[in-house]
Design a protein around this nucleic acid. Structure first.
Length: 223
DNA sequence: CTCCCGTTAA
DNA sequence: TTAACCGGAG
């Protein structure tokens, strides 16, 4: 997406990409690792997720079979650095049970092959511990489906830029973005990663508007 | 709405 | 010492 920005969200994309450069997400070595990371990063700093994934890898536990084959309490101890370790252990097991039931335990990247993303999303949402954001993160970053991922950063940034209504639902935000950004996985991938970066560095809960790359677009920073 | 929870920046 | 962290379930 290097052409002329037209819509507000496309403008945001252009500015962020110019400022931060390509983000090259998701940081993972396999689709399954993306899925695991998507669960582990729920309301958790990525730094701590890396430790948990490192522990899983060190224990040779980064597979559907390994996770289903170990005691939940042992799994919980391995992922302890990611926080919420007891609930997340249960969620990881639920995810793995789902992958096994879908017949893709040996190759989770095959999940949803020949199925449309909307149907797969519905199935994912049934899995314990998979909500809308986690489902969409899996669709986009593990399976390359052209689905916008909406998170707390997206909402905060969108609200401050006045691109979103105050109490917009997940689906409303997703639709607003989909209407303004090309339906290409590579672009939606990059957009979400860029928004996360902005949310961490500038558009924080206590914002740092002075050097924000979106300052001139933002009524919050520049009233 | 509250709980889940370790880790680190401020 | 607190606030925040690439949310979701009950």
């Amino acid at each position: 997406m290097a052409d002329r920005p037209i819509t507000p969200w496309a403008m945001v994309y252009e500015r962020l990409h110019a400022h931060f450069g390509a983000q090259d997400w998701w940081p993972a070595q396999s689709p399954f690792e993306v899925m695991v990371g998507a669960i582990l990063t729920q309301n958790t700093a990525w730094r701590n997720v890396e430790r948990a994934i490192g522990a899983l890898r060190a224990a040779d536990a980064l597979s559907v079979f390994a996770i289903l084959g170990m005691a939940e309490a042992d799994l919980a101890q391995l992922i302890r650095p990611a926080g919420y370790f007891r609930v997340k252990a249960k969620r990881l097991r639920a995810l793995c049970a789902f992958l096994a039931a879908q017949g893709v335990a040996a190759d989770p990247g095959q999940l949803g092959r020949g199925q449309d993303p909307a149907a797969l999303r519905q199935n994912l949402l049934v899995v314990h511990g998979v909500g809308e954001e986690t489902a969409d993160a899996i669709l986009l970053y593990a399976l390359d489906a052209a689905v916008p991922v909406v998170d707390a950063y997206t909402r905060r940034i969108g609200e401050r830029l006045a691109l979103l209504p105050e109490k917009a639902s997940y689906r409303e935000i997703q639709s607003a973005i989909a209407a303004e950004i090309p339906a290409e996985a590579a672009v939606l991938n990059e957009l979400h990663a860029l928004l996360v970066q902005l949310g961490k560095e500038y558009c924080r809960p206590r914002p740092r508007c002075e050097l924000c790359p979106l300052r001139s677009l933002c009524p919050y920073a520049y009233p």
